[in-house]
Design a protein around this nucleic acid. Structure first.
Lengths: 240, 240
DNA sequence: GCGGATTGAAGTGTTGACATTTGAACGGTC
DNA sequence: GACCGTTCAAATGTCAACACTTCAATCCGC
């Protein structure tokens, strides 16, 4: 059940462990529980604002409340859930404005990642990146998953913390938002034009240019999201 | 019930609770424990690489292992400690190179914060910022605390997530590093020159310029840290 | 004397049980 | 009929106890 990387996640080489169905005393149930809840949230199965009922989750995941609480604390720190003292934990509920605000963080961090990656990526990695880009052009759309154009660049920066922030924390949030906000769903289809310029900058090992191109790209994505949102909120133009 | 947003959101007056000295069954011991450990780590009392002994901490903090484990999970998520499956938790141990790498994240995020702050800070906040700057000049050194020049700008961006990353997570790490790495201690003394240019850009509401100035400033701080590190590692020049 | 198996204590991971709190249905009063 | 206090089941916060693992000192065989 955990391995549910639905569609999106690209050609993940069945990263999920074989996992015997009957497991006794494996230790570290926290990880399994955490993964299950994160997956539930980011896939949209658990909606934003939903309450995480301790005993119920406990039963459903086949674990006692101890590890469950530890997992929820980790989620709280990751700011995926919000806990109120004696009332329990709820999946965090972002306003559209807050989601938009995140694009600025992404712009800053991914821009820096590109700057660093232009210096640190190996020639092989850059060749792979070109391959991904050409696949996008051939296919006519971007992929958006764990082997995404963006993620490859971030990984190429060889900066664990940056990678963690963008490819783990932020990716989870983005999956959750795309599952719950319709106005975020479209927007990346015509990205390969920007991608080409980013790719070329990296191929030329021009970090400053790569950063600039990434920032423009993400600015464009943000503006498109804002535009989608505006249209969705004022649909009365249709009738008049 | 929704109004009970504790923490981040908003300028809640008199944030610190009076807190009776004798507390019985208050609930939420986790917070107290977490704060105690974070303080121990960032003040240098608990050294990087040190092991967090469950039972011992349990006794010292007067709490059972349940809440303690929850606090440790939060620290793990915050990447202040690293847990290995059956061996326990250790305070994370960064190499000098990893510390240096962090300056790039800070550069990206604080730059963006300044860009946003130039747009969103109130005139009053900008006036306060100037006051802080003039205090630095008069005093001849920067302060570096919770009312720091940098933190004020970040707060002025009105971006909770950004604020959290820079003024909480990153600040804790920085405190820890300064307590443990001598070569990080000096570096901010002659910052007010940069600060002046940042301040002026913000006063002119020029976000792009403010971002550029902040990025140059932090680049300078990084280069100075690198220089300090280099000198500390090759002290043999003294003799020859 | 030294290398490797053994044993034991300490520590980690998990569980079930207990006190306290919430919040929501219920009934009473104006 | 609306508002307020009471009551009670469910959920939360905490704790002590129970398996299992690790690690280090010990002991045995060579």
């Amino acid at each position: 059940m955990d391995s549910g990387d639905r569609g999106d996640s690209g050609p993940s080489a069945r990263a999920a462990a074989p996992e015997p169905l009957v497991r006794r005393r494996m230790g570290r149930e926290v990880e399994r529980v955490l993964e299950a809840i994160v997956d539930g949230i980011s896939s949209g199965a658990i909606r934003p604002g939903a309450k995480l009922n301790g005993p119920e989750l406990s039963r459903r995941l086949g674990v006692s409340r101890g590890p469950l609480r530890e997992a929820i604390r980790r989620l709280e720190e990751r700011q995926l859930v919000q806990c109120t003292p004696n009332a329990g934990a709820r999946v965090v509920l972002h306003s559209a404005e807050e989601v938009i605000q995140f694009f600025y963080v992404r712009e800053a961090l991914e821009g820096m990642a590109a700057r660093l990656a232009a210096r640190t990526m190996t020639d092989g990695e850059i060749a792979d990146l070109r391959e991904i880009y050409e696949g996008e052009v051939a296919r006519g759309r971007t992929l958006g998953g764990r082997n995404d154009f963006h993620m490859r660049i971030v990984r190429g920066a060889y900066h664990p913390r940056l990678s963690r922030m963008l490819n783990e924390d932020f990716y989870t949030l983005y999956r959750m938002w795309r599952a719950n906000f319709e106005w975020l769903r479209n927007g990346g289809e015509r990205s390969w034009n920007d991608h080409r310029r980013i790719l070329e900058a990296i191929e030329q090992r021009d970090g400053e240019l790569a950063e600039l191109m990434v920032r423009r790209h993400i600015t464009r994505l943000r503006e498109q999201a804002e535009e989608n949102l505006r249209r969705m909120r004022e649909p009365r133009l249709v009738g008049t």
